[in-house]
Amino acid sequence: MAKLLYSATMSLDGFITGPGGDMSWMTKLPDTGPHEVADGIWQQVGSLLIGANTYGGDDPNAGTEAEGAFGGLWSGPQFVLTHNPPAAPVPGYTFVTDLRTGVDAALAAAGDRYANVLGADVAAQCLAAGLLDEILVFIAPVLLGDGTPLFRHPGGTFAGLEEISSTPGPTPTIWYRVRK
C-alpha cells in the first residue's frame, strides 16, 4: 500500500527555496559523493503530488539532462494541486483542484511505492489534514537566510514525529514517520 511522503532538500537554516522561490542554490552545493538515500529514493517513488508553486517554479536543472524530479531520473504519474488548472491538457500532468482528490489519485497511482509530495504548501496542507505519512529531509551544508521554509502553517500545526532512520555525513538525512 502506498504512503504519502514529503521529501525535500533543506538548508541548515530551514529553507527549501531561497527568496522568491529561487532554487539556483541547489546547483552550488558541493559534490559530496555517493549518498545511499539520495541516490536511491527516486526508485521508491511511484507518483508525485505537486503544488502549483512548485509546478510553475524554478527548476535549477532546467535545460540540462538533470531537469525534472529527482535530477531527471524519475518519470511517472504527476498530479498538480491547483485552484487554476490550465484550460488545455498538459502532457504528463493531471490537474486536481482539491487536496483529498489529489492525495487519493497520487496514492492510487503509486501502487506499492511512495506518493511523493513536492511543495511546502501542499505538504503543510497534507500534514494539517492528517494525510502525511512520512517526511524525508536532506540537510544541505548551506545557509540561505530567507525563502520558503520546510513547513509553514499559520497558527501552527503540532505534529509528533518518530525517527525511521538518519544518515550522517556532509549532507545528513533524517527520515521521520508522522505520528497519527
Rank of each mutant, 00 (worst) to 15 (best):
K180M: 05
L143I: 09
W74V: 10
V122R: 00
S47K: 07
V137L: 05
D59Q: 11
D98I: 07
L150S: 00
S11A: 11
G160M: 01
G63C: 13
G76P: 14
T94A: 09
T157D: 02
V45C: 02
P149D: 07
I174L: 10
A66G: 10
G102Y: 02
Y114H: 15
Y114I: 12
R177A: 06
D146W: 00
E36C: 00
F151I: 05
G33S: 09
K28V: 04
F151D: 02
K28M: 13
T82N: 13
L12H: 00
G71N: 14
K180L: 02
E65G: 02
G68C: 08
S11G: 10
T97L: 03
F138N: 06
G18H: 04
D112E: 15
G155S: 02
N61M: 12
P85K: 01
D22L: 03
A109L: 07
V178L: 07
W175D: 11
L49C: 07
A38Q: 14
G40V: 05
L161K: 08
L4H: 01
G68T: 03
A124W: 04
A124H: 04
A159R: 09
L132Q: 06
T167P: 10
L5T: 00
R179T: 10
G76H: 15
G71S: 13
A106M: 06
W25G: 11
R177G: 01
T54A: 07
I164K: 14
D58Q: 00
A52P: 10
G40N: 15
W74R: 08
P154I: 04
E162P: 04
G160N: 01
P60R: 08
V122F: 04
L131C: 09
I41W: 15
Y55V: 02
H83R: 15
L144F: 01
H35V: 01
L161C: 00
L81D: 14
A106K: 05
D59H: 11
V37Y: 10
I174H: 04
A8D: 12
M10L: 06
A120M: 06
V90E: 12
A62H: 12
L150F: 07
T101I: 08
S7N: 14
W74Q: 08
I50M: 12
A115Q: 05
L136S: 09
R179V: 14
P89K: 08
G130F: 09
H83K: 14
P60M: 03
A66W: 13
P149R: 11
G51M: 07
H35Q: 10
V117F: 08
A66S: 14
G119C: 01
D104A: 07
L161G: 11
D112H: 14
W74M: 09
G40D: 15
L49Y: 09
P91C: 11
I174R: 06
E163V: 12
A8I: 02
V117Y: 08
V122M: 04
L73M: 13
L118T: 15
P172V: 03
R100H: 13
P86C: 01
